[in-house]
């Protein structure tokens, strides 16, 4: 019973906090540009409005067009539940849960791209093709990062892997995971969440045809994924297990905030890369994770 309650609490926390991050990013961007910007809670308003709106669906779309976003959202929530929250540990920790997390993200990708292919539009096909292609490199980088953490901690369970810091390779791992975060969440320099030119995007172009409640679910899922990656990155770098619960909570909140602000700054200061250069950048992210793995290999507890 207490496990169920624990999971419900985590669920509420993740679901409620996730839409905050895009708001903070937009605030940072507005601040750098010298604008006033939308309120931090803008996404909450958007979601509640979209939830009440009616839906226009392509004549070609099957029920999978609506089921896709729903299943993707469940997969992302599942992945978030698996992730330990600082001093409170994991909700469902078991050996190998980290692999399940990676593959739950893949489930979300399968469903999102499936829904994109429903409409028979070339634009959405392009977005889906880019999403699944770049994912090959991000997934390889992510697994390499996980290997580094696993070598460092001598464990394949998330709560032990993330309790320690990433050791000597922490800086490399942080840089690699930050690039993976940007790519997986379709932020600049991989993608531009602001443009509405259908040709230039990955994520936005896949959801062109979605509207109303399904779009709300997609946007919330995207926010959740961003929060998930920010927490993962923070916990991989910070030695959570060595701090007092209060300090760890504060450190986690601070780190997630710092990552979010970092995303905002990158978005303000960099332009989106040409698509040709995206694989190059992702390969660099992979190499960073690889060197972190090698450092962990050399220096970890033998």
């Amino acid at each position: 019973m207490s496990t169920l309650l624990d999971i419900l609490l985590r669920l509420t926390l993740w679901i409620l906090l996730a839409p905050l991050l895009p708001g903070i990013i937009n605030q940072v961007k507005a601040w750098v540009a010298g604008r006033r910007g939308p309120p931090v809670l803008q996404l909450y308003y958007d979601l509640s409005r979209l939830w009440r709106k009616s839906v226009v669906m392509s004549t070609l779309a099957s029920p999978g067009f609506v089921a896709g976003p729903a299943v993707a959202w469940v997969a992302l929530v599942g992945a978030a539940i698996l992730l330990p929250i600082g001093p409170f540990g994991g909700g469902l920790s078991f050996k190998g849960d980290v692999i399940l997390l990676v593959y739950l993200l893949a489930v979300a990708r399968f469903c999102t791209t499936w829904a994109a292919m429903e409409t028979g539009s070339a634009f959405e096909g392009m977005g889906a093709a880019r999403e699944v292609s770049y994912a090959v490199l991000t997934e390889a980088a992510l697994i390499t990062a996980i290997l580094a953490l696993s070598v460092e901690s001598g464990s394949v369970a998330l709560d032990r892997m993330l309790a320690l810091s990433a050791g000597t390779g922490a800086v490399l791992l942080a840089a690699g995971l930050f690039a993976v975060l940007l790519a997986e969440n379709c932020r600049v320099p991989f993608d531009d969440p602001n443009t509405h030119l259908e040709l230039t995007m990955i994520h936005e172009v896949m959801v062109l045809d979605h509207s109303g409640p399904p779009l709300a679910v997609i946007l919330h899922g995207a926010a959740l994924k961003l929060l998930l990656f920010a927490v993962l990155l923070s916990e991989a770098v910070l030695p959570m297990g060595r701090m007092s619960p209060l300090a760890a909570t504060a450190a986690l909140v601070g780190a997630v905030g710092a990552v979010t602000i970092g995303v905002g700054l990158v978005e303000s200061l960099l332009a989106r890369f040409a698509f040709r250069r995206v694989p190059l950048l992702l390969t660099i992210a992979f190499l960073l994770c690889l060197f972190a793995l090698l450092l962990a290999w050399k220096g970890g507890p033998a």
Binding site: W51, S54, V55, M57, V74, L208, D209, G212
Partner: peptide
């Protein structure tokens, strides 16, 4: 996950129907 995914899909479908569902041409710019 399987049960939740089924429930979520059914719920979202029901919500979509209730909110009003129209069919239109695929948006092609």
């Amino acid at each position: 996950v399987a049960i939740l995914a089924a429930v979520a899909a059914a719920w979202l479908w029901a919500r979509t129907r209730r909110a009003g569902l129209r069919r239109g041409l695929t948006w092609d710019c």
